[in-house]
């Protein structure tokens, strides 16, 4: 009889663990957000994280943005030409970037570039007793490690999304106007006439939420690396980093769907 119910019990246990993990992660994020207002010492640490998340990712975002825009220009042109609507290329490129690709691709790039490093750094601090050392010095580890990263992500994700959007539009210009000879005025006119303020706001809301999600997940994976059931020591840090990237990417796409359904 026990064997008969074993799969159901296992499924139930997994469900409970997942619910506990979601609850723990939410509490972790709220704690990180609450400690943002605990004093001025957060500012120098946030500046350092802005440098790590923002500045150090800037050139990768430029590179990905320009190629993404060029591909959109190319694909858009050969799709629109079938309907005799190549004049709409500016709208297609800009709306795709501002509403969807800008926030999503920027967040995914930042997950790989900065999120993985957050998970690994905090994970190493965990397994080498550095987080315990903070605790015994009466320094709240969440306030010290997580809050500055959350604040920096909330600032840098939208800013880098804006950079991605602009560079992507320039990429679309390179292929559409310079290579495929679409009228330059039509390209920019379509952008200014089709992109509205709600489109821009929606894109920034998404990137803000993605910043919170990515940073929370990556920091928490590192923070709890010592509690992983599948591995210990350096292997646990490696697995925590992998989990951080995978969970963040899945959450970005899931949250994108939810937010889009509310924003449209």
């Amino acid at each position: 009889m026990a064997n008969f119910f074993a799969p159901v019990v296992a499924l139930g246990q997994r469900g409970i663990s997942a619910a506990v993990a979601v609850g723990d992660t939410t509490v972790f994020m709220l704690s990180g957000l609450a400690h943002m207002f605990s004093g001025v010492r957060i500012f120098p640490r946030t500046l350092r994280q802005l440098y790590v998340i923002g500045y150090k990712s800037f050139f990768v975002i430029l590179l990905i943005g320009v190629f993404c825009g060029m591909v959109l220009g190319l694909q858009g042109y050969y799709t629109l030409v079938k309907f005799g609507s190549v004049g709409l290329l500016g709208s297609a490129v800009s709306l795709s970037l501002v509403r969807e690709l800008g926030p999503v691709l920027t967040a995914i790039m930042l997950t790989g570039r900065a999120g993985s490093s957050m998970a690994a750094e905090i994970g190493v601090m965990r397994i080498t007793d550095q987080i315990d050392a903070l605790e015994v010095m009466d320094i709240n580890p969440v306030a010290y490690l997580v809050s500055p990263r959350l604040l920096a992500a909330m600032i840098s994700f939208p800013l880098l999304t804006a950079v991605f959007d602009v560079i992507g539009i320039i990429g679309g210009y390179l292929t559409g106007v310079l290579m495929l000879n679409i009228n330059e005025g039509a390209y920019f006119y379509r952008i200014s006439s089709s992109v509205t303020m709600p489109d821009l706001t929606g894109g920034f809301v998404k990137s803000f939420v993605f910043g919170l999600l990515v940073t929370t997940v990556c920091c928490r994976q590192g923070y709890t690396a010592h509690r992983r059931g599948d591995s210990v020591g350096p292997e646990a840090v490696g697995n925590a980093t992998t989990s951080a990237v995978v969970i963040s990417c899945v959450l970005i796409l899931a949250a994108d769907y939810v937010l889009t359904s509310f924003l449209l």
Partner: peptide
Amino acid sequence: FQDGALLGALNLAQNVALPLSEH
């Protein structure tokens, strides 16, 4: 702690001053 548990991102002076600088 067994291996010192110094924070890797800070130099020795900053590590040692940490309990004071934070409080």
